[in-house]
């Protein structure tokens, strides 16, 4: 069994009112530990509702969620304990900062876990380094930092809890290109260093293509597919019809294929595209 597993997970908003809406509909998933997964889907596809089940913020209307082999909500006294295994970074997480100093804000999660001051201190310094916050920033007020720095503080606040699964909802939203690259870079580094499972929710296909190994596509409250990058981007037309965009290079090569250039590869990164063109040229010369 994977680190996250769901059985017929269904969630209904506003049951018994005219606004009743099935946000997640019969989802069966099995995510392996150590995987880095992209979750994509248009606004309202159910992806945000889905991830809130993974740490028990929402209780399924029906179906089950298993984290690390243990069923959520089976034993209510265990809920808090299991919740600490799954760290959830919400959209625009910098808006939840509240402490006087960056240090104290990162400490909020670890303290709630009941860690000793010493252990918390170690983790805070460690994650601050990991997200690229200089030690002198730790004593500053989080409200004095730049937008990108604030976001890294907020992410560090969850990473410091050392969850087995880290979920990030649109972590690059609203940032400039440098900020985007920085956040994606640190997510990759974190994954490489800690080896924990990472789920990256995004509607930026470029971000997803650059970062993840597998992709979960949500559409109209259901899982459209859960597979590796190439198989997902092979369905570019269907993704576009769902209101998602595929990376620009993917579109370019899909069009080239349609024009009669022959190759089997699915292209979603610039480097890959470059190598492919060079290879095709070499084949042509032969």
């Amino acid at each position: 069994m994977g680190i996250i597993r769901t059985e017929d997970l269904t969630y209904v908003y506003g049951e018994g009112t005219p606004f009743r809406k099935t946000a997640v509909d019969g989802v069966n998933l099995d995510i392996e530990a150590g995987e880095i997964v992209g979750i994509i889907g248009h606004t309202g596809s159910g992806k945000s509702t889905l991830i809130q089940h993974f740490n028990g913020l929402l209780k399924p209307t029906s179906g089950k969620v298993f984290i690390d082999g243990e069923e959520l909500f089976a034993d209510k006294s265990r809920l808090k304990e299991i919740r600490f295994k799954v760290g959830l970074v919400f959209q625009y997480p910098e808006y939840q900062l509240f402490e006087e100093t960056v240090y104290k804000d990162i400490a909020f999660g670890p303290k709630n876990m009941g860690l000793t001051d010493g252990e918390a201190d170690k983790r805070i310094k460690e994650t601050a380094r990991l997200v690229g916050l200089k030690p002198e920033l730790l004593d500053k007020s989080p409200f004095e930092l730049s937008g990108g720095q604030k976001r890294r503080v907020a992410i560090a606040g969850v990473m410091a809890m050392e969850p087995k699964v880290l979920i990030l909802d649109e972590p690059t939203a609203g940032l400039d290109p440098r900020g985007r690259d920085r956040i994606l870079g640190l997510i990759k580094e974190y994954h490489a260093e800690k080896g924990t499972t990472v789920l990256l929710v995004s509607h930026s296909m470029e971000d997803v293509a650059k970062t993840v190994s597998k992709i979960l596509v949500m559409n109209d409250a259901k899982v459209f597919m859960y597979s590796d990058r190439s198989s997902v981007f092979a369905k570019a037309d269907e993704l576009t019809a769902m209101g998602l965009t595929v990376p620009q290079v993917t579109r370019v090569f899909d069009r080239l294929r349609a024009m009669g250039i022959e190759f089997d590869d699915e292209v979603f990164s610039i480097d890959y595209a470059k190598d492919l063109v060079l290879r095709l040229l070499a084949e042509k010369r032969r």
Binding site: V252, R255, L256, M259, G260, I261, V277, L280, L281, K284
Partner: peptide, 11 residues
């Protein structure tokens, strides 16, 4: 880009 690459790669 499509046009240029096509010119480059077509048989």
């Amino acid at each position: 880009c499509v046009e240029r690459l096509y010119q480059l790669l077509k048989k």
